[in-house]
């Protein structure tokens, strides 16, 4: 086991001693910093003391538009229900220019984390081949399986680190810009015609969790491509392309039933908690099973290829 920790240290050294990977962390911090400044300088007014009247007026306006735009019915119903809940339970809307509102937006950064993690994952095995270092790496008394596992785990730790950096920096920067607030408010969500109260921090971590499923699957996919094709450009390019287009593609194809077996139809688990499933009949358990199958497929293929390959680079 101490051996395995050593291997993780090795992989981490190879990730963090490279300028490119550190620049990605700086870009992430820069992105959050910039978002904060934009929010701060934004013209939206703070929530007034008169917010109950305002919400009532908003609801009345929405009731009217529902009749004109039946397409948007469910969207408006949701907003109306949330507003009514606020009024009856006296829960003031969260001010956009507040620390927790800003932190609550931070899961958006996971799109960047997705790309950065794919870049690291796509180079993980392929780079060892292109550097030629694979030959010295594999002639140690460590099994190839263990080496591959340490590489995979280090990739995931990199993603986790980026998520933690995002959260911590968003909290700090939000505090600096909007003042520290140690009593986060309540988030309201709407599912199956009911309004549910949630702690905003808990809600935010759930958002991270949902968004991380695509991250996990695509990082694993990039890692597999890297192992099979030993070409980091191919692994990175293809994985980023799929991440960007996959979700859109399944939306477009959602009229076909077989689409439910595609990975991208199942990565958004939020559809079962706050929204409607992409295809009728899909359930949380179904999606989890599909995800598990893809995950096992990706990791098993990487493992088999890495274990059996003759190293002739």
């Amino acid at each position: 086991m101490s051996n395995f920790i050593g291997l993780i240290q090795n992989e981490n050294m190879k990730i963090y001693r490279r300028m490119g990977n550190l620049i990605m962390i700086l870009l992430l911090i820069g992105f959050i910093g910039l978002t904060g400044i934009l929010t701060k300088t934004d013209k939206t007014k703070p929530v007034s003391d008169n917010w109950k009247q305002e919400l009532k007026a908003e609801n009345a306006a929405m009731q009217k538009t529902i009749k004109k735009e039946p397409m948007m019915k469910s969207h408006y119903e949701r907003s109306i229900a949330l507003n009514e809940y606020r009024i009856t339970h006296d829960i003031k809307p969260v001010d956009a220019k507040s620390q927790w509102s800003f932190v609550g937006e931070s899961p958006d950064a996971i799109q960047f984390i997705l790309i950065f993690t794919i870049i690291v994952a796509g180079g993980m095995v392929a780079s060892e081949f292109s550097w030629g270092t694979i030959k010295l790496l594999l002639i140690r008394p460590v099994s190839r399986t263990t080496i591959l596992a340490s590489k995979y785990l280090s990739t995931m730790l990199y993603a986790l680190l980026l998520i933690i950096i995002t959260f911590v920096f968003a909290w700090l920067w939000g505090g600096v810009l909007f003042g520290f607030d140690f009593s986060p408010g309540t988030h309201l969500s709407y599912a199956n015609g009911k309004v549910v109260e949630e702690n905003i921090v808990w809600h935010m971590w759930k958002e991270y969790g949902f968004a991380s499923i695509l991250l996990l699957m695509m990082a694993t996919f990039a890692f597999m491509m890297s192992t099979i094709f030993r070409n980091s450009s191919l692994a990175i390019g293809f994985s980023i392309f799929l991440s960007m287009s996959g979700t859109v593609a399944v939306q477009l194809l959602s009229k076909y039933d077989w689409v439910k077996y595609i990975l991208f139809a199942n990565v958004d688990l939020k559809q079962y908690f706050d929204g409607t499933p992409l295809i009728k009949g899909m359930t949380l358990n179904f999606s989890l099973s599909v995800l598990a199958v893809y995950f096992v497929l990706f990791t098993a293929l990487s493992w088999l290829v890495f274990k059996k390959r003759d190293v002739a680079a």
Partner: peptide, 14 residues
């Protein structure tokens, strides 16, 4: 066994 296979390729950024 200790070995160098072909060129001694090391991690250049380390």
């Amino acid at each position: 066994v200790g070995a160098i296979v072909e060129n001694p390729e090391m991690y250049k950024f380390l």
